[in-house]
Nucleic acid binder design. Structure first.
Length: 822
RNA sequence: GCCCGGGUGGCGGAAUGGCAGACGCGGAGGACUCAAAAUCCUUUGCUCGAGAGGGCGUGCGGGUUCGAGUCCCGCCCCGGGCACCA
């Protein structure tokens, strides 16, 4: 489309100026009120895609808006530059992931600059910068010192597609890899973990106070999964001196325990198995070991396959409530990693136990009277206890308490809180990540690399063959070293850290990237933290946001971040994703609509306006054939702003009159609406009210009788200031033309609505008869209910409509409405 | 199965319990033009009516209220998250 101004020239001019003049650089000693605005650390996948554009459009609006409020706004940029795609691409191309990554970084950087998003580029940080790695490794070692990083053998998730282990958080519910979609395998490996479970309680409690979207908070709470219950002993019937320890959240249903179950991984399992049952049990355990999570959880509902998936051990334990002997089974529906890895089974009140009991012909004893009409299945709701000795008649809560006391007295019971959250597995058998700075010595064991030898950098000549072994393990020059403690030959750790470790503290480095001798100076970081507004995708609702919260708490506790707030992100906004044909638009799906094609035509301002206007920022956007038209519509709006600003077809008169005043009032109402819209993330309506204002001003100034020139200028200036955070290039250019030699529009303050002007001189009052609109009257905004009713009843339309009928009742809500009931 | 969202014109979407459909896209008609593009103007929920005007309309069924897209109860459908966590 033909544009009335040179889009490219204007945009290039201002982008260069913001960059060259360091307009959006802020120093840590800035005296203004501070605001930390942050978009999530992007993975450099190449030129920005629409998701990035959306993210930085919102982020840049916040930066410019808060700056216009007189604040020192920290707006940093950097790259989450380690990661698998670069390594895989490098393997394919026979190059080094660094080359690949840095080329993609340059592309992404140039396309966010092309959008006109402004940053303090002096603070740029990227994960594979040796200077960043040094501090990443220092933090790892500090965690190690403090016992927060440890090495353990554990059944872990192995992704055959990614050739590495994954954290629990990276495995989907169906047992597939979050990244590659491959079915994840279980392997028993020795790996590094971070003790995030130490923080489960605090991570859960602190969620409450966060100004985050409710659903993200819920997802975090669910992921942590706190449950209160009792851990106690089930004594072996044959040998009461030994016991099976179990955890339950429903001790009140103890009289209904008709069997017990241990997980296939349970350490006591083979003590319990009798000779007769050994073959069956072994078969089940072998199968469970090899089964993927998917297979193990697949047929959960129907009850199909349950028979195969459980076996009698031959042993019995005593139900401490009833004193009866009940059989012990092994079944893979019980997890080795949760609670004690063993449960008391109550089929009447637990669906899973019920399904298993049905298949294996185990007795079912109700301990809670189900409500009338309940089928014969498990009932886990409220109700009075039956068949429960001392608990008969009690409700669930009091029975739980009574049962807990009973178990404390008679079965070694203790009340316990369990969490679903597991420790964070951070080892990755890949090359393109930050090496774990550890050395293994036959004499001294696991030894930290001395701080003055950091960073540990991977050599460049490593073969990345995806054999499943860490690429670094095959590089003898890297692998062989000497023990820092005893000097004898030793071997380096060959795994790298999960890249989520990099994104767990980058915001702290942003706050103080200048300190040479530590990751960040806590005094400097405290000046900016917490992040006032964090913006990113919903896909990070659990992983990144949970890890980063953990990191900050841990850093404070081990003394690396004294004085910092314990939560990193005060406010979070999660933008909707962009979909094309129903699926998420992403590089990996290959369904990108590149922003470049719009830059030359509608320009960055037009594209930004589209993302602001197309719908609520939190909602997903469906990219359709219509999107192109809407983008053009946004550009058309900017063209009209430009033409009006140059008085195309405008006429003028000298004496200010009531029409002119009314337009100025509309301008002030728009200030109020736009401000409100920007504050509550209703960007689409903020843009809409500016469009409306443009229509109003434009119609007024182009009437033959014309507009008052000074009022028009005042209105245009205010409109440009409101539009400045949304369409920064055009508004900067127009402002410069209208105010040569004065500070830029972005250096002006955010307009304040004058409450006197916002108030309406007269308002339209609706008159209803029986709830239907029958008349509209102009009234003063401060009209009383009585006067409003009188005016309504006197209005000719109403009189005609009533035709003498007598009002039964008149409801007045002055000045908005009067409803006459007949 | 459980927990969140959501369901409004042809489309994206607006609406502190008070004029449903702001704003934009698309459509129709018109002005300008030799013509087109661009621009501007008018119009645009459905329906009955020549018109004035009327009726109906926010997934479905009830309810509260003078008044419900909005609140309550019961459903249906769509999207997302979680799902043997004892």
């Amino acid at each position: 489309m033909a544009r009335p101004f040179d889009v490219s020239a204007i945009e290039k001019k201002w982008q260069a100026r913001w960059l060259d003049e360091g307009t959006y650089e802020v120093n840590n000693d800035d005296g203004r009120e501070r605001f930390f605005a942050l978009c999530m650390y992007p993975y450099p996948s190449g030129a920005a895609h629409q998701g990035h554009i959306r993210n930085y459009t919102f982020g840049d609006l916040v930066v410019r808006y808060q700056t216009m409020h007189g604040k020192a706004v920290l707006s940093p940029f950097g790259f989450d530059s380690f990661g698998l795609p670069a390594e895989n691409a490098a393997i394919k191309a026979g190059s080094h992931p660094r080359q690949f990554t840095e080329a993609r970084m340059a592309e992404l950087k140039s396309s966010v600059q092309r959008l006109g998003a402004v940053f303090d580029w002096r603070r740029e940080v990227y994960s594979h910068d040796p200077n960043y790695m040094k501090w990443a490794q220092t933090i790892f070692l500090a965690f190690f010192e403090a016992g927060l990083a440890y090495r353990a053998q554990a059944p872990v998730n192995w992704c055959p597609g990614c050739h590495t282990v994954l954290a629990n958080e990276q495995v989907n519910a169906d047992g597939t890899c979050d990244r590659s979609g491959d079915l994840v395998e279980r392997r028993n490996l020795e790996q590094w973990f971070f003790k995030i479970t130490d923080y489960a309680e605090e991570l859960l409690n602190d969620v409450d106070a966060l100004d985050w979207p409710a659903r993200v908070k819920t997802m975090q709470r669910n992921w942590i999964g706190r449950s209160e219950g009792v851990e106690f002993d089930l004594a072996l019937s044959m040998d009461p001196s030994r016991a099976l320890r179990v955890f339950t959240t429903r001790p009140d249903t103890g009289y209904g325990v008709t069997y017990a179950v241990v997980a296939p991984e349970h350490p006591m399992l083979f003590d319990l198995v009798t000779d007769d049952e050994r073959a069956n049990v072994t078969r089940l355990v072998e199968r469970a070991k090899q089964a993927s999570e998917l297979e193990r959880t697949a047929s959960s509902d129907a009850g199909a396959g349950l028979e195969k998936r459980g076996a009698f051990t031959g042993s019995f334990v005593t139900n401490p409530f009833s004193g009866e002997s009940v059989p012990v089974y092994v079944a893979d529906y019980v997890l080795g990693t949760y609670g004690t890895g063993a449960i008391m089974a109550v089929p009447a009140e637990d669906e899973r136990d019920f399904a298993f009991a049905r298949v294996h012909g185990l007795p079912i004893i109700r301990t809670i009277e189900p409500p009338a009409g309940h089928d014969d299945g498990a009932y886990s709701g409220e109700g009075a206890h039956i068949n429960s000795g001392f608990m008969n008649g009690m409700d669930v809560a009091s029975a739980k308490d009574a049962a807990a006391q009973f178990l404390e007295k008679n079965a070694g019971g203790i009340r316990k809180v369990n969490y679903r959250l597991r420790d964070w597995l951070v080892s990755r058998q890949r090359f393109w990540g930050c090496p774990i700075p550890i050395v293994y010595c036959d004499v001294d064991g696991i030894v930290a690399v001395p701080l003055d030898q950091l960073p540990v950098l991977a050599p460049d000549d490593v073969v990345m063959d995806q054999s499943g072994q860490s690429p670094l393990a095959t590089h003898e020059g890297f692998r062989n070293t000497t023990c820092p403690t005893c000097g004898r030959p030793a071997r380096r750790e060959a795994d790298t850290m999960d890249t989520f470790t990099d994104s767990s503290w980058y915001f702290l480095r942003y706050a103080d990237p200048f300190t040479p001798d530590q990751a960040f100076d806590p005094v400097e970081a405290a000046k900016w933290m917490p992040v006032d507004q964090y913006i990113g995708g919903i896909e990070h609702a659990i992983l990144h946001l949970l890890y980063a919260r953990f990191y900050l708490k841990a850093l404070i506790d081990i003394g690396l971040a004294p004085g910092l707030p314990r939560e990193p992100f005060k406010r979070l906004f999660t933008q909707g994703m962009i979909r094309l044909d129903g699926s998420k638009m992403s590089k990996s799906k290959g369904n990108l609509i590149a922003p470049e094609k719009y830059y030359d035509n509608v320009g960055a301002d037009g594209l930004r306006l589209f993302h602001l206007f197309v719908g609520p920022p939190a909602d997903d956007v469906d990219w359709t054939a219509q999107s192109e038209d809407v983008i053009e519509g946004c550009a058309r709006f900017l063209d009209r702003v430009y033409r009006l600003g140059h008085y195309d077809e405008c006429f003028f008169h000298d004496e200010k009159n009531a029409d002119d005043d009314e337009v100025l009032r509309e301008v002030h109402r728009t200030i109020a609406k736009v401000t409100d819209g920007l504050e509550r993330w209703s960007y689409n309506t903020a843009v809409a009210s500016l469009m409306e204002l443009l229509n109003t001003i434009s119609r007024w100034a182009r009437r033959p009788e014309g507009a008052h020139r000074e009022t028009l200028d005042e209105s245009l200036d205010l409109m440009l200031r409101l539009l400045a955070p949304m369409a920064p290039h055009l508004t900067a250019e127009m402002w410069e033309g209208r105010h040569p030699g004065e500070p830029s529009v972005h250096a002006t303050s955010w307009p304040l609505a004058d409450p006197v002007l916002v108030a309406h001189a007269s308002v339209v009052m609706v008159v209803q008869v029986n709830g239907k609109v029958r008349a509209r009257l102009d009234v003063r905004p401060d009209i009383s209910d009585e006067d409003a009713s009188a005016a309504a009843l006197a209005s000719p339309d109403v009189v005609t409509f009533l035709r003498g009928a007598l009002p039964q009742r008149v409801v007045a809500r002055a000045p908005r409405l009067v409803n006459i009931i007949i």
